[in-house]
Each structure stands twice: as C-alpha cells, then as structure tokens.
Design a binder for these strands. Structure first.
Lengths: 234, 234
DNA sequence: CGCTATATTGAAGATCTTCAAGGTGAGTGG
DNA sequence: CCACTCACCTTGAAGATCTTCAATATAGCG
C-alpha cells in the first residue's frame, strides 16, 4: 500500500492535519507492527526510541507502583497517538504500553519525528493542540475519580462508549472487564456488582454487549450525589 | 520595575526559557494583578481572554459537577502557568480558577500570547514542553487516585511538600485543609483522621506545620498495599 | 472432555463519608 | 480586657462504598 493510502486509512488527527509531504515522510520512515493481545510494546522508564499511532485495536498505558499495583493511565484506540512526548524529550518512557487487544500500530522512529518537527514548523502546532487534548482527557479522569463513586464512573463509561442502535443506546464493551475495572480505578468484583446494580437503572445485558433502555435514568445516576442516591433507593 | 526585572523575579520556566525580546514583550503587554484569598480569577466555560503566570501564592483550578461537588484539578504556585491552552485554542476555559491564598498574578492578554507564538518559532517548543509537564503531573495524580488509599495520598502529599530542617523533614501546609482534602479527593474529616493516624508513622504536629521524624516509615506506608498495612497494624 | 482464563456472588472487613457535636483561635465590639 | 462571633478543624457514631478472600459459574479452546 502507498504511504498516502496508509496515512489516510489511519484516521489520525496528527497525521491528517499535517501537510502531505510531512505525512508521507513519517509513514515512509515508519514500520507497521501487529501485536497480539497482552504483548508488551515498551516498558516504563526505558529509553523512548519510537512513538506510535494506533491503527486498530486498543493499547493500554500503565504504571506499576512500588506496591505492585498497576495504575492504568489511558486507553488508546484507532487514530490516537502515544509516546510522542517521551520521544521529543529524548528521555525515558513515562509509562509502560501493552496491546490490550490484537492491534495494528504505526511505529514512528524517534529521529523521523524530530526531523519532521525541525523541517515543518506547522507540525509543532499540531502536536501542541494534540497535547492539549491529552490534558483535557486526563482532567476529565481526575474529575471523575475525585467526585464520582465507582458505579457513577461505570455508568459514565458506558454512556461514553454507547452508540445508537434502534430505539436505544447500545454498548459493546471495548475490552475485558478486568482492564475496564483497572481503568476506572476499581476492582473487577466491584465492576461486576456495579453492572448488576445498573440493571435497576435501565442497563440490560444482551448478546455481546449492554443495552441502555433508559438513558435519562442513567444520566440522572451519573449526575447525582450520594445523598440523593440513598433517597432514591427507598 | 523594568519588565526584565519582573520577568526574572517570577522564576517561570516558560518566561525564562524564552528569548529576551519575547519575554519583555509578554511582560510589557501584561498586567500584574493582586488577588485576595477566595477571589475568582475566571469561571469554567467562559471565553478565555487571558492566560496567567503565578508570581506568588496559590491558585486553584477546579470544576463544579452537575452533582454540585467541586473537583480540584490542579494547584499552582510561583512560576507556574495556567490557561495557556484555553487561550491558544481560542475557546472557553476548561476549568474555573480561584485565588487559594492572597496572590500575585501576571495576566497575559490572549492577543499578546498569540502574537508571540506567531513571531517567535522557539516559543511553541517551550509551550510544548510545558504541556508535557502538565501531562506528567496529571498522570501522577491519576496514578495516586487509582491505586492509593486516602491516607497514602496524604502521606505522599506531605512527602512532596517537605523540606529539610535540622535533622528531620518539615512540612508547612501550603493551603487550608479543606482545600488540601479536595485536592486529594477526600473529605476534610477524612483528612483530619488521616493526619491523626500518621502520628503512628512519624508525623508530629509542631507549631505552624508538621515534622516528619521517621521518613522511612512514611515511605514504607506510601509504597505498601492494603494487606501489608493490615498486618503491620497487629 | 477437561483445562484455563474470565466473570459472578457471598460474607467479612477496611475505608471513606455523612451528620452531629464540640473544640480552637483570630478578630471584633462592648 | 473579656465575651462574642465566625471560620476552621477535630472527633464520635452510623452507614455507604469498596476491597478481600473464597467459592462457584461460565466461556473459549486444545
């Protein structure tokens, strides 16, 4: 496949906003990598020699704490980029990365990225606006972790991943529940119980996913406070 | 005071890394604002007309959720910058900002920032590396919120703000406990109880602050898991 | 079929919140 | 100077939420 075709197929904001020449140069210098589920992409605190764009599947960015616990920082899917910051700082990776599902990655070598940033002044602005979006996404996570209960975060997660289907919204869980729980900052058992409770709020399991039959009830749960939830349970 | 002197006094990485001409232009176009504790700087989802550098004191960045709860996203102090992303995207503020203590701010008008980004190609790179640091700070918060208990986050907060003093480490709490609790994602009562428990781990209250008499014990607590903490309590 | 990984459920306990009451200290006015 | 107020902090008790551990269920796969 031609570089131009590959780049167009990835649907990556960073690549599609760059001028043709830059885009083709990056893709030509890159390597397409196919990863199995669970395979490691790079480890935390190892030298950043490449950065990546997800072409397909899901990638988990995580850290292992001294306690042995794993903190899942972000999940990335088609078109999303990661490890650009690590490469540009010429330092170590600030997190580890694993393939969360079978996935296709575009691996961009460090020197290619640095050269592009040198040669194409507009590319810096693209990266800047991309990093602003990262900040927004992380801020949203912090907001949820500081102010919402586990079940509210689960509900908001479903809401975010829901797509219209017939009269209702339908959610195909993007990855396994163990991982989903880690991303939401709860244990798998708690996720299981949260999903069970959500049946009272219009979330029913159907083959291969979940159906949201009462969107209003779910939104109400997400926006409610603990006190209100207690009242409603009576 | 001359712009050059002001800029030097702020000790802001963004300004000090910029070339002299850029730095002076920004400071000349800016206004120094003095805010009382609790005073609002700007509101969430209002047009971003300026961005800011903290010259002194503490600033709280926060969001009010539909539930009425307040999520404290970041705290900024001397030399740190905020709202640059909002200005450059020509959009609304992604969070509200309040003076958490009496403080001095450098208020940079939106057009001055945009002009500098246009005229000085190196300035974009400075902003990019600054936003990478923001991402790191937010990632650290997420790591703590997902994997650490309240008391561990309190301990880590003390560790972070501690400075050597005599034989031990000493912490002057940077702002009131209500705010500290909100930043850590717990209630003020829980913070109070956490600090009480930390006395068993070598944290003693002295006039105007806390002394860490057993740094090893504190670090051990921060890195421990729930199971280990239970064992240790016997 | 049995194996393994993943998911669910129950029970007990840890952690955090809520609500209520009391304490402390700085500032104010008599 | 003392009492009063107000804001902030602490403590106790009860309850909500989440975790832990153990047992069981389910599904995919050789």
């Amino acid at each position: 496949m031609q570089p131009s075709l590959i780049a167009a197929n990835i649907q990556c904001p960073i690549l599609s906003q760059a001028k043709l020449e830059t885009r083709e140069f990056l893709v030509e210098r890159s390597r397409i990598r196919r990863m199995e589920r669970g395979e490691g992409i790079f480890l935390h605190q190892t030298p950043a020699r490449s950065c990546f764009v997800v072409m397909n599947g899901w990638v988990k960015l995580y850290r292992i704490l001294d306690s042995g616990d794993e903190a899942v920082l972000r999940m990335h899917t088609r078109g999303e980029a990661f490890a650009f910051a690590d490469v540009l700082r010429r330092g170590d990776h600030q997190y580890g990365a694993d393939a969360a599902s079978e996935c296709l990655l575009l691996e961009i070598p460090a020197d290619a990225l640095r050269q592009v940033l040198n040669d194409d002044p507009a590319f810096g602005a693209i990266l800047l606006s991309h990093s602003f979006e990262q900040i927004d996404a992380l801020s949203d996570q912090i907001e949820a972790l500081k102010c919402q209960s586990g079940i509210q975060r689960v509900a908001a997660f479903l809401r975010y991943h829901a797509r219209p289907k017939g009269n209702h919204l339908f959610v195909t869980l993007p990855y396994e529940k163990v991982l989903m729980a880690a991303y939401l900052g709860i244990k798998p058992e708690s996720l299981s119980r949260a999903l069970a409770k959500l049946r009272q709020h219009g979330v029913v399991a159907v083959d291969g996913g979940l159906e949201i039959t009462d969107q209003g009830a779910l939104d109400e749960l997400i926006a409610s406070r603990a006190v209100e939830r207690r009242m409603a349970a009576r």
